[in-house]
Design a protein around this nucleic acid. Structure first.
Lengths: 338, 338
DNA sequence: TTGAAAGCGCTAACAC
DNA sequence: GTGTTAGCGCTTTCAA
């Protein structure tokens, strides 16, 4: 902002008051069309650009929405962000995006920075690490709307958007059982996060319902980082009772599992059937194609964006809606077929 | 920002002037440690939060960097963004990210919005569509640093960060030739963008150097969207001379090609050898594993972030550096083996 | 329909 | 080392 043409300059050029210029620029109704037109044209002509700093200061709002995600470079998350960005962009909101990199510490700092930056609202998907949520209180006390998606926590007045992980887990388990698996394993993400806990619970429910054994091999908690996959493979191959069905909490990890299992001479789906999660494009690239749960990331982003913007514009009150559940769907492919 | 405690409030509580408070908060040297401490403590105690709008207005800077990318949900791009975010976050810069969705129109609007938002600098990867670059002139005339990465354009005073696509294309072609391919094809992205043009040029150079024929089947231009892959497969299978080597401008597309080729009964690498681009994780998931060119996305993001921030802090002058070339690398895997 | 003027909260030049 | 004060550029109440 250095070629400083202000509303004062415009006012002077046109022999009107700055107030009139300001009103015209904001399309205020109490200005005659004639002067409005005159001012707008002049503004265009001299290349006037509004100074948002000043407008923000005066308005106490920024037309900016803050986003905190664990990391933005996963297929799922970047898809969600793309959805949020799209709707925000359309209605003229800016998006400030920051990553917690799974660290509660960074999440806190990010929240603080975004608060200071004067975001009008905050969208959050939690870090695995986070146990304490005081850093979000500043937002609620200041009545800055706060919405959680995917990795959520139940905070008063904060709506959440997610899928029904419990039933998704159940469906995955049930499907494997129906395909004839009797010795099942779940490879989970960080169980501190409710979505992973729920997926496991649902999965376990399916086992219980079919009177299948639950033992030390039923659940492995991981960070879902393929780097550390080897120990998981060893656990699978080392199980006393041969494992014949695996439900993995992410497609990416599942694809890597399949790859390593194949290397270890274990056939998928003949020896072990696999169900992933997310419906990542990789699920259709891996051979065999991966059975998975479709998780509508883009839609989630769009919905999160739309909800928060509608709330900001006053057209709906988010505080009352507490949870929005998106529809998921089991997609069966080769990795679990008979 | 509704629980409004200002520096005036603090000043009053402590019987000092607002200026002293401001200076203390900014750790100005001309303030005695004693008062500084007193003020900082009080600020903490009453939960004072600085109002960035006011600070920005006064400073004429926002500590914010704008980013425009074609879309943020590709593996490569989200990796770059993760890199940018990481360095920006570390030094207290915010990132406003927007997508052009490959449309010049949206790119223009995004640029305008970011300009108005008062970003201190702008990082851009161009939309395929863009032919006109006037929308970036506002930045250069206002001396707002502008840096292009990946999909770049040569604008005066604007540094660019990219890899040597010419030699990357050459290496890919040469590799296929060395593997015994004689009838080669390149599946390119939008040739309006120089990086794709360069990849093809390099590839062609390899063919010319080995006196291989260049014909209508040597080059297919696509949007690299797997949705429209079928026509490409038909072109491949319909070629009068059997194509035995393909260089694809993205791993994702290459993986889908391999998948479809396999469906069509064509064996990779026996019948056709394939080289991709990016070293996307999918390249190690697809079977056969994909030979590819490693493209250091995260590093590119980090470098872009570091460069622009160093420039903003005055420690280097970016205008003089015109182009930063990152090192790429051919990674040979099964898809091109003998 | 338009204008005058008082903020919005912070910074920094200039005094003391 | 600290205080006074004049901006930064826009919005908006109140008055005309």
């Amino acid at each position: 902002m250095s070629k400083k043409i202000t509303i004062y300059d415009l006012a002077q050029m046109l022999n009107v008051s700055p107030a009139t210029v300001s009103r015209s620029l904001n399309n205020h109704h109490s200005i005659s069309d004639a002067t409005k037109k005159r001012i707008l044209e002049k503004a265009e002509e001299v290349g006037y650009r509004t100074n948002k700093f000043a407008a923000n200061l005066s308005n106490q709002k920024s037309n900016t929405i803050g986003v905190i995600v664990p990391r933005l470079n996963s297929y799922f998350m970047s898809t969600v962000l793309a959805g949020i960005e799209q709707v925000a962009n359309e209605v003229g909101y800016n998006l400030i995006i920051s990553q917690s990199l799974e660290s509660e510490e960074k999440e806190k700092i990010n929240a603080k920075t975004l608060l200071d930056s004067g975001v009008d609202a905050l969208l959050v998907s939690l870090a695995n690490d986070s146990k304490d949520y005081k850093h979000f209180e500043h937002f609620t006390t200041r009545k800055i709307p706060l919405l959680f998606f995917d990795r959520v926590i139940d905070l008063p007045h904060c709506p959440t958007i997610l899928i029904d992980n419990l039933s998704a887990g159940y469906e995955a388990g049930k499907h494997l059982i129906e395909q004839g698996c009797t010795n099942l394993m779940h490879i989970s993400g960080n169980l501190k996060r409710k979505l992973y806990e729920d997926r496991y619970k649902g999965f376990k429910n399916a086992l219980l319902e079919h009177q299948l054994e639950i033992n030390d091999y039923t659940l492995i908690e991981t960070d879902l980082d393929p780097k550390n996959i080897q120990s998981v493979i060893e656990t699978i191959t080392g199980s006393p009772k041969k494992i014949d069905g695996i439900f993995v909490a992410s497609d990416n990890y599942a694809a890597n599992c399949i790859k390593e299992l194949k290397k270890a001479g274990i056939r998928v789906p003949q020896d072990i059937k696999v169900v992933g999660f997310n419906n990542d494009p990789v699920s259709e690239i891996i051979s065999p194609n991966l059975t998975t749960i479709n998780y509508p990331g883009h839609k989630m982003g769009v919905l999160a964006g739309e909800s928060i913007i509608a709330h900001l514009k006053g057209s709906i009150n988010l505080q009352s809606t507490n949870t929005i559940l998106l529809r998921h769907q089991l997609i069966t492919r080769e990795s679990s077929s008979n």
